[in-house]
Computed example of a mutant assay.
Amino acid sequence: MRIHAPMTGIEPISGKRYSANSPETQLWIHITGWHSVLKAYEVFGPGPLTPEEETRYWAERAEEGIHHLLWTPRSNGAGMSYYVGSRLLSLASIALLPKWMRTLGHFDRPGIVDIAVAPPAKSLVWAFTRFDKAGLLRAAPFIAPMAGRILAQHIEGAPPARLETTTPTAARERYGMHGVSKAV
């Protein structure tokens, strides 16, 4: 996260701000990372997976990732506030997800739980923003320390150091990461 934190800027085609630590960028990185693992296995290993094996591979990776995000392990070293905060946030987050995604990820629950979660979640958001619009931003570092810092940096919208898009090769050269291997 620290390596990626300074990598922000304006994407020249859309003109929109980006951050290497944004959820969209992280999703892209993780998907291409898992795809690269699969591709390397197929090219350098025993060969292509069958369609059924590939479906299983993606389902297992998705389930593993979802469960980690929804139920952050206590042993990850992020502290008790992060552990408790992620557990509370997951209650509200699951309520927003479609049934098919819950079924796929093996974390569905009765609809009454979703209904019961909405009023307290709405009350907490109201309480944090009633008198101070940045209340949630101020609470974020206690619930999710790294995400809170990244969110603050993104909202503050500090201009990028350089208005340019950097290729992975140029970034490796610039940051002295010559030994980092390229994805397949």
Rank of each mutant, 00 (worst) to 15 (best):
I94P: 00
W71N: 05
G85I: 00
P119L: 02
A118Y: 14
W126M: 11
W58Y: 11
P119W: 02
P48D: 01
L69T: 12
E42Q: 13
P51A: 15
R87P: 00
G45H: 15
L27W: 07
L89F: 14
K122W: 12
R109L: 12
I31F: 12
K39I: 05
S123L: 06
G85P: 03
I112H: 07
L69V: 14
A92I: 06
W126P: 04
P120T: 09
G65P: 06
Y83R: 09
E52H: 02
F107L: 11
T55V: 09
P110T: 11
P51S: 15
K39Y: 04
L88R: 11
D108K: 13
S86Y: 06
I31M: 10
A95I: 10
P48K: 04
S90N: 06
D108G: 14
R56Q: 15
R87T: 03
H106Y: 11
P73Y: 01
A62S: 10
G111D: 13
G85F: 01
A127Q: 09
M80I: 15
P46V: 08
L124T: 03
D114S: 11
E52Y: 01
L69Q: 13
L104Y: 01
R102D: 00
P98M: 13
R109F: 11
H67G: 03
S75H: 07
V125T: 09
H30M: 11
G79D: 04
G85H: 00
E54I: 13
E60M: 07
T129M: 04
L38Y: 08
L49Y: 07
L70Y: 00
T72C: 02
D132P: 01
E60R: 04
D108W: 08
A116D: 08
G33V: 02
A92Y: 06
H30C: 10
F107W: 03
H67C: 09
W34E: 12
F131A: 02
I29G: 13
E63P: 01
H67V: 08
G47K: 05
P73S: 02
Y41L: 11
E42T: 10
G47Y: 03
E54H: 13
P48W: 01
E63K: 14
M101I: 11
I66G: 00
P51M: 15
I31W: 12
E52Q: 08
T103F: 10
L96P: 14
